[in-house]
């Protein structure tokens, strides 16, 4: 490149220098501008705004008359002193962790299955992706129909298999059972991503390593636990963190399947926040709840970023 400059006339060189300046300084700034505007205007600034609102008593009057007052930490105090809000936070965490554990187990198992050599493997690989593609609302709806107490496929399958209890069984009467049904939907939708990502990882492991382990007499289970998974440790960790973040954000499936019922016992943090804002009009407290969620997720994200950095190093 430097060769060109030496042999070019002065005015061309000057033009080239101007171009270089444009290309080195102005162009990147120009190209970053729209995306930067979107990211700052629509995510960074709103987070600050939510933070600000969480110290106010903003309600519907904020919109009609524009008035609201700063109430310090009152909203946070009311969140953490209320047994209801505390139990919502706790159940969001417990349910989230349970979903992640299930998703990872199912996802990794399916990836191991797909890594075996059998006829129809490619077909299965495509079928497994489908649940990921189904929109969350549609997925929740079809599963809700399958869990219908009177006409549901699940109850029919279960009582046909000899479990009389499931004749007319109401899946959404008790929170634990309702959460089980919701967890099945969540896992159904999130295991494909784990399975496909893990499969890519598995296929990157050279076959010789397995062969060597076979010679040493390691069984299939031992090979998976002692060789395969440790080799993919960082991938597994990253996937775990990603699915944890997803699990904490769950809204749609619960909103469609139970809307938080019965008796608000299946409300997760996202739903409670929404309800506090849009049916109770308590935008201040809703913002405080949202910030609680933000800090939890920020913590998990920090772990995620550290994992990625280690991976890069």
């Amino acid at each position: 490149m430097s060769g060109i400059e030496i042999t070019t006339p002065l005015h061309v060189r000057r033009r080239l220098r101007g171009r270089r300046l444009f290309e080195a300084r102005i162009l990147p700034a120009l190209f970053l501008l729209p995306a930067g505007l979107f990211v700052f205007g629509l995510t960074v600034w709103p987070v600050f705004r939510a933070f600000q609102l969480s110290f106010t008593d903003a309600n519907l009057a904020m919109f009609t008359t524009g008035e609201f007052n700063y109430v310090g930490l009152n909203q946070y105090v009311s969140v953490f002193t209320s047994t209801f809000f505390r139990s919502v936070i706790l159940r969001t965490a417990v349910f989230g962790i349970a979903c992640v554990a299930l998703t990872m187990t199912v996802g990794i198992s399916v990836s191991l299955l797909l890594n075996r050599d059998f006829k129809g493997r490619t077909v299965l690989a495509i079928l497994v992706i489908l649940p990921w593609a189904v929109p969350r609302v549609a997925a929740a709806i079809v599963w809700q129909w399958m869990f219908h107490d009177q006409f549901g496929l699940m109850n029919w399958l279960l009582y046909s298999a000899g479990f009389e209890l499931f004749r007319g069984f109401a899946w959404f009467n008790q929170p634990v059972i309702a959460f089980t049904a919701i967890a099945i939907v969540i896992v159904w939708q999130s295991f494909p991503f784990i399975a496909v990502s893990m499969l890519a990882g598995l296929q990157s492991i050279p076959g010789e390593i397995h062969d060597a382990a076979m010679i040493d007499g390691a069984g299939a289970w031992q090979r998976i636990m002692n060789i395969t998974l440790p080799m993919l440790k960082s991938l597994v960790l990253v996937l775990t963190v990603i699915s944890t973040i997803w699990a904490f954000k769950i809204f749609d499936q619960v909103f469609v399947m139970t809307a938080g019922g019965p008796a608000r016992q299946t409300e997760l943090l996202a739903i409670t926040t929404w309800r506090e804002a849009f049916t109770q009009h308590n935008f201040g407290r809703a913002s405080a709840l949202a910030m609680v969620m933000f800090f939890i997720l920020a913590g998990i994200t920090a772990v995620y970023l550290r994992l990625i950095r280690e991976e890069e190093a």
Partner: peptide, 29 residues
């Protein structure tokens, strides 16, 4: 880019934001 590392972290982090946090401020906007 100056501060590129932080910019990248921000972009990655932004994907993790719970929608619900953004809901009210974006509604106001």
């Amino acid at each position: 880019i100056p501060l590129k590392r932080y910019l990248l972290i921000l972009i990655l982090g932004a994907q993790m934001f719970p929608f619900v946090v953004l809901l009210i401020p974006i509604f106001i906007l």
